[in-house]
Amino acid sequence: MPRLMVVTRAGEELSFEANPSSSVMEAIRDSGIDEIAALCGGCCSCATCHVHVDPGYVAKLPPRSEDEYSLLHGLGTFKDNSRLSCQIRVADAVEGLKVTIVPEE
């Protein structure tokens, strides 16, 4: 199973194996990290699973959809490497993908 690296809001780096059939949001939640609210449950509707993708991995992921971009770009914490973690499939993620959980708005 692919490994993910997650940087929590406290700055702690955690690495774990992720289920390839899940989204990165689901994988983070299943690992026991409880910093992602994911209020909408993963259908690209609430922007509470916002992460910054480590710059080295951005281009290796399938691009953001228009839905995803339109939710993200209104956030104060938006950056070029912003993603909604519910919209990244673990199966599409490269080994060692590193994301940072963005502080709450």
Binding site: S21, C43, S45, S65, D67, C86
Partner: peptide
């Protein structure tokens, strides 16, 4: 997780 994933695209904003 897998069966739920079949549905998520139905509820995206667009």
């Amino acid at each position: 997780t897998a069966d739920r994933a079949l549905l998520t695209s139905l509820f995206v904003p667009s």
